[in-house]
Design a binder for these strands. Sequence first.
DNA 1: AATGAATGAGCTTTCATTCAT
DNA 2: GATGAATGAAAGCTCATTCAT
Lengths: 233, 233, 233, 233
Amino acid sequence: MTTVQPAGRPLRRDAERNRLLVLAAARRVFAARGLDAGFDEIAREAGVGAATVYRRFPERADLVDALFEQQIDEVVAQLKSAAVDPDPWAALRRFLRWGMEAQAHDRGLAEVLAEAGHGHEDLDRGRQRIEPLAGALISRAQQVGRLRPGVTPLDLLLPTTLFARVGTPEDADIRERLLTLLLDGLVVARTAPTPLPGSPATEDHLAALKSPRRGRSAPAARRPRPEGAPAAS
Amino acid sequence: MTTVQPAGRPLRRDAERNRLLVLAAARRVFAARGLDAGFDEIAREAGVGAATVYRRFPERADLVDALFEQQIDEVVAQLKSAAVDPDPWAALRRFLRWGMEAQAHDRGLAEVLAEAGHGHEDLDRGRQRIEPLAGALISRAQQVGRLRPGVTPLDLLLPTTLFARVGTPEDADIRERLLTLLLDGLVVARTAPTPLPGSPATEDHLAALKSPRRGRSAPAARRPRPEGAPAAS
Amino acid sequence: MTTVQPAGRPLRRDAERNRLLVLAAARRVFAARGLDAGFDEIAREAGVGAATVYRRFPERADLVDALFEQQIDEVVAQLKSAAVDPDPWAALRRFLRWGMEAQAHDRGLAEVLAEAGHGHEDLDRGRQRIEPLAGALISRAQQVGRLRPGVTPLDLLLPTTLFARVGTPEDADIRERLLTLLLDGLVVARTAPTPLPGSPATEDHLAALKSPRRGRSAPAARRPRPEGAPAAS
Amino acid sequence: MTTVQPAGRPLRRDAERNRLLVLAAARRVFAARGLDAGFDEIAREAGVGAATVYRRFPERADLVDALFEQQIDEVVAQLKSAAVDPDPWAALRRFLRWGMEAQAHDRGLAEVLAEAGHGHEDLDRGRQRIEPLAGALISRAQQVGRLRPGVTPLDLLLPTTLFARVGTPEDADIRERLLTLLLDGLVVARTAPTPLPGSPATEDHLAALKSPRRGRSAPAARRPRPEGAPAAS
DNA sequence: AATGAATGAGCTTTCATTCAT
DNA sequence: GATGAATGAAAGCTCATTCAT
C-alpha cells in the first residue's frame, strides 16, 4: 500500500495540508510543464511561498521521488490487471494504450519513466517493479502466438513514450492511429492491415512536438544534501 | 532555383559575408542544440557580434526561414531520387530511413519540419513542396500492393520524427530497430515479422529523450517587428 | 609599473570606463565592508547593473585580484622607501604605523593581506614580494641593535593587522597608543617606557571591534571558471 | 550572589527548564560561533523550537544580557584571586594570559566584553564591576615598579581581546608569543627582551582572522520591543 | 506556553535583447 | 554597418523573524 505520509513523526496538521497542496500542485505543474518546472511556479500553484516548497523538498529530486510512487503504482496496477486477462494480446494492447495516454496527459510521468539514474534511487527501484510485470505480459502474448518474438519491455516503452508527445492531451485520436501502426508491426503475422482509426495527422500534431522545450535545464543538486532534512516522505 | 540572396538591394560585400557566416553558424548550432539555441552562441560560432545577428535576423524565425530552403531542398532531392526507383516500397523504406537519420543528426531539421504556422510562411510553403512528392511515393508503394492504404505523408513523418529523437546521433541501431517495427506495421500483409536488427532498447536510449530541454523557452517576438528591417532574406 | 589594463585588446572606451568605475566602487565597498560585500552593493555604488560586474569579474576573486596589485604595490613602495632610510629602527616604526593605518582605513586591504591560498595565486605571489623586503628591514633594525632578535615579518603583521581593527578610521590616536606599547616590546632594551600618546582606550574603541561581522560568508567559487573569460585585468 | 531567575512571577516549571536549556545552548553556540549565531542554531542545540527562544528572549540582547553575569563573574573571580597575590606583576601577567585564553576559547565572551552601549545596560554595569578590580591590580603592579604608568584597564583589555582572535583555540602558542611582546612593552624597563616562546606566526594564523564573519549582520531590533515581553531575566 | 512551519526579503547568477560607440 | 557591452527580468536558494496550531 502506498502512503504519502513521511516516515517519522507525522507532520502538524497545517504542515501536512501544505505538503499535500505542494504535491498536488507539483503534480499538476509537472504534468503540464515537465519536471524542469520552476519551484516558483509550483509554489504559486500551491498557494504557498517558495521557501515552503524548499523546506519540504530541498531538492527537486525529493519532489519527484515523493510523486513517483503514486505514478509507478498506477502503472503496476494496470499491469497486474493485464496479467489476469485471459487474452494477453488484447491486454497488452490495452496496456500500451493506457500507458501512452497516461504519459500524454502527464508530461511528468513520461519524464519520470524515462529518467534513469540521476540520483533517483527510489525511482529506479520503482521502474524495476514494472519491468518483470511487463516482461510477463509480453511473454504471454508471445506464447499465444500473437506478439512477435524478440521485443522487450523497453522496446515497447520507447515508442509509446514518443507517441505520447504527439498533440495535446485531447488528441487521443492521432495517438491511437500511431499505436495502430505500431501494433500492426508488433503482431506476428496478419493478412490485412488493421483499419486506421481517426483522421490522418495534421501539421498541428507535428507542431505540438515543439513543446518539450521549457525553462532552464535541470541544474542538478549542487550540494549533496546537508545534514538532517530527510526530504519529507 | 533556390537563392540565399535578399530580395532588395544587394548587401555590401562584407555584410553579405557576415550574413553567410551567420547562416552557416546557425546551421551548425541549430543542428547541435535545436532551434532554441541562444543568439549569443550563434554569434560566437560565426565570429561576429551578437548584434550583427540581430541586425540581419531580427527574429529567430527569420533565421529559421533563411535556413529552411537548403534543408527542404535536400529532402526534395531525396524524394525525387526515390520517385525514379523501380521498387517504390524499397524506395519508401530508404527514404524514411534517410529522413529519420537526417533528423537524428540535425535537431534543427527535426524542429523545422515540425514547426508549422507560427509565422513561418516560407517554411509552410516549403513543406508544401514536400507533401506531393511524398504523396506520390506513397501512392506508388500502395499501388504495388506493399504499403497499406490510408496513410498520408504526415502519418509517416510523425513517427520518423519521433524516432529521430531516440539516442545520440551514433545510436542509429536502435532507431533502425524502431523503424523495422514501423515498417512491419506499414506493410499490407506479412506472414512473419522482419527480424529485429540491433539490440533491444536500453535505459540510456530512454534517458537521452530528456535532452531536448535546453535554454529558455522561445519568448516569441515581443514587438511585432518594429519599423524597417525586412528580415534580410 | 602597475597597470590596471587588461592584457589583450584594450576595452572599448565606455567599457573601460565602466570597468574602472566598478574597480573604484569595489575598492570603496571592500574598504568599508570587507571582501564579503555583495556584488549588488558594488554595482549600485558603481552605478551599473549587477550583471556588468559579473561580465568583467565573473568571480569575486577576479575582482580581488584586480585590486590587489595596487594595494600590494603601495606596501612594496613603502618598504622600498624604508629600505633606504639611514635609521632602520625609525623606518620600521614608520612602516608599521603606515601599514596599520592603511589597514584601518581599508578593511579590504587587511583581509587581502590576511587571505592566504583560497585560489588567489596572484595574491599569494604579491605577498611573497612583501616578505623579503620586510625581512630585510627587520634585519637592519636588528643589526643596529634596536629591534629584538627572533621576530619575523608575520610576527609584526599580525599585531598591526589586529590593531588596525580598533576604532573607526578616525581613531588613529588609540591605535598609535597600542603601537607604542608594541614598539616598546619590540625594542631590545630600554630604561624607561615611551610616553603613551593619546588618551586611554574607551568603550567605544572596543565596541568598534564588533564590525567585522557583515554579509554572508564567502560562498567561494562554485564552478572553477568555465572556459574563456580571463577575468579582465 | 548572581541569580538567573527572572524578576517577576517565577516561570512555570517546564518553562524554567526550557529557559535554562536555551541559556546553556546559547552559551555553547555563542562560544563557538560568536554572538551573531542564528537563533535557529541555538534552538536546535537546546532541543526546543525557535519560537521558544524568541519568546523568552525577544531580542538577541536579552539573551546576551542573561548570559553575561556568569561570564563576568568568572572574570571577577580571577581578578579577586589576583588581588591577593603577593607578586602583583606576576598576577597581572597571569590574569592577562587567562583573559586572553578565555576569550580565545569563547568567541561570545570576547564579543560580550567588547560590546559597549547598544542597549546592554546590564552588561555595562557588569563591566563596571571589573574595572575597579583591574585598576587595583594595575596600580599594585605599578607601585612595585614593574608596570609602566599611564595604562588603564581598557588599554590592556584591548590588545588581549585582539590577540584572542588569533588562531584556533588550540593555537595558544602563537598567542603567548604575542602576549610576550606586549608584556615586554608594558614593563617599565628591561635590559634584554624576554625570549619569545613558540614559533613565529604563520599564514594560517593570519588566515584564521577571517573567520569572525558569519551569517548576516545583526539587523538590530526593527521594532523597539512591542508591548509586554519584559525579556525574561 | 510551546512549537514547527511559513514567509518575505535578499543575494547570486544567467540570458535575450537593446544600445552607445 | 558592426560591435561588444549593458541591462532588466527571472529563477534559485537561504535566513531571520513571525504566526497558526
